[in-house]
Nucleic acid binder design. Structure first.
Lengths: 343, 343
DNA sequence: AGACGCAACTAAATCGATCTAGCGGCGAAG
DNA sequence: CTTCGCCGCTAGATCGATTTAGTTGCGTCT
């Protein structure tokens, strides 16, 4: 009896599909199963308040193109409240052409402070506009996106694979030098420069990501602007020993590098560990600055100095963009350097 | 021009709702906007193959209760293929009473190896049965679940807040001593016992979780079974300094404690850091074992010994349960201790 | 008195797939 | 020569909300 009780994972389960022959079920799962019969529909509300379905719809949606008497309006509202009417999203979606759902595509390995606050902001703002956020984890082929699209026709699909933008768009539209990717990359490099470092390396993850190129470009532009040497890109691979080897190679190939700016906190942590394993002192022999302020940076010794980005506003903005709303008047909290012990 | 280009987050955007007056949009977002007009429907396929809509549905769904001639069947399939017909999930959901979507509720702070492999298994198995997994992040009130329910009427909602089960169910159904929570908790304690520890503490997170009680109960039962003292529960709070204080208090209150079993790797990491800050040697003065093998355990020094659980099978099982399918014949990979340096 | 406009509604089409009830034709049994 | 049954297929109802195209009744203007 493997994994007894797993069935109870279920928080809620819809009545089985009518065409149950398709999924020949041998066992009915437990959980709170809700029969479809209980649903209160527009028809019920219409009947209860003695008007037509159309009128009910007009009232409940506050349709400005219709004139409904105050008395009727009140009667309908009352009935809806008493019956506990809730519009059926699926039916509405069929009619409107899209469900009130926004899907966020997140690739693996992008968790962190940024994604959390981004999701929070996105979720909040969508909720404020009567929409729901659902996240699709995995690696995202056009095919997998199509499946989601076909399954629920969401109002929009937002991709998080490249948290800000692809480099191309960025260049076209100002690069986000104010409060986007470019600004944050610059912040990181600038902090190193302020601490007197003149030759820095950029530590990249071993997984392929289009964002790496963009980051490198922005770092390079910032370095140039500050009069530093061009940043040296290098990869910090995953097994602990391989990471150490990478750092060793970097230091022999580029002896003048005194600081490392990491693509994210994960890579920074690996760099810190590698430095420790090589017997290097941090920040004496090598300074390290992270990016995105995960919890773990505070726990390692020496504690990681990093860039903290509050993406709540980014999330809200993304939500409004997805809904086709006005996106002005939403000032993001500026990113800041969390100074700890590694720089 | 704040956050220029954020609009390009959009991977796909549905045509705006017809009732656009509701969300008065000042600006149309860019992105790949797909007009609803392009959709190929059952009607199109029916017309193309010269049969009725019903017949097409029967053929494409392989309805065993209908007899359709091989010739017709082929003609319909051909037409569907040529036109690129894809069933409209929303329409289907309206008819069937539920969409082919399963929602997974995940509370914050539960990321890790377990949740990743769980999601992977769940996603895979659902995909194999023509369903889509979507994740809802946040703290989950019944209200928020209702909103999701009303928005897309998913086939099922699975809650991950308590990754295995609530304690009550667990006790009722054998406790998961074979390959569930109880077994994994036991594995952790047993490892400490094997290394000669006779009095252990259980490090808990500062956030409220019903799972903590269950874990404690299982740990206690295992300890008793192995002839150890009853495990001492204590909380490791979040700011680094507070964590150190907690460990200090633990050691003065219970000087005989020589090892800590952590609720998860996060708590284990905090414990390790606290020990370091107090000048304790690990595992000499205090041994620490984690739970769930996140990447960070390998990066800290001393590297964290932990319990690795491959939840793929758990995910697959949850998927089948959600779909009301047979759940037999799916043997999980047994959990194992990853021995590193902290025990 | 007739025309016109407006407020306040309603009937019915619509979105796209599923599924029930039933129809015509053909072969076999009586 | 019926009659029954089955194969192969179709018309139309259905799911629940939105929205268009009216309709009714009343007041006003000429």
């Amino acid at each position: 009896m493997a994994l007894v009780g797993l069935v109870n994972y279920l928080d809620w389960r819809c009545r089985p599909a009518k065409n149950a022959w398709r999924v020949r079920s041998h066992q009915i799962a437990s959980g709170q199963v809700m029969g479809g019969s209980g649903r209160v529909t527009l028809n019920d509300v219409a009947a209860a308040s003695g008007v037509s379905r159309a009128t009910v719809s007009f009232v409940l949606n506050d349709d400005p193109r219709q004139t409904i008497s105050a008395a009727t309006r009140e009667r309908v509202r009352q009935a809806a409240r008493e019956l506990g009417y809730v519009p059926h999203g699926i039916a509405r979606a069929l009619r409107e052409g899209a469900s009130r759902v926004v899907v966020l595509n997140i690739d693996w390995g992008l968790e962190g402070n940024y994604s959390h606050s981004f999701i929070r902001g996105l979720d909040d703002e969508l909720a404020a506009h009567d929409h729901v956020l659902l996240v699709h984890h995995g690696h995202h082929s056009p095919r997998s996106t199509r499946q989601v699209l076909d399954a629920i026709t969401p109002r929009a699909v937002i991709r998080f694979a490249e948290p800000y933008l692809t480099g191309h768009d960025l260049d076209d539209r100002g690069g986000g030098w104010k409060d986007g990717l470019a600004a944050h990359a610059a912040l990181q490099i600038r902090h190193l420069a302020e601490r007197g470092h003149t030759c820095v390396a950029l530590a990249l993850p071993d997984t392929e990501t289009p964002l790496a190129d963009v980051r490198l470009r922005f770092a390079a532009r910032t370095a140039e602007h500050l009069g530093l040497a061009a940043p040296v890109p290098f990869v910090v691979p995953r097994p602990r020993t391989a990471g150490a080897r990478a750092i060793e190679e970097l230091r022999t190939a580029h002896p003048d590098v005194t600081a490392v700016a990491a693509f994210n906190d994960d890579v920074a942590l690996r760099t810190l560990t590698a430095a420790h394993d090589l017997g290097l002192t941090v920040p004496g022999d090598l300074a390290v600055i992270g990016y995105d302020d995960t919890e773990y940076g505070a726990l390692i010794t020496p504690a990681l100095t990093t860039v903290h980005i509050d993406a709540e506003a980014h999330g809200r903005l993304a939500a409004r963009a997805a809904l086709g709303l006005d996106t002005t008047g939403l000032e993001p909290v500026p990113a800041r350097v969390i100074v700890r012990d590694s720089v």
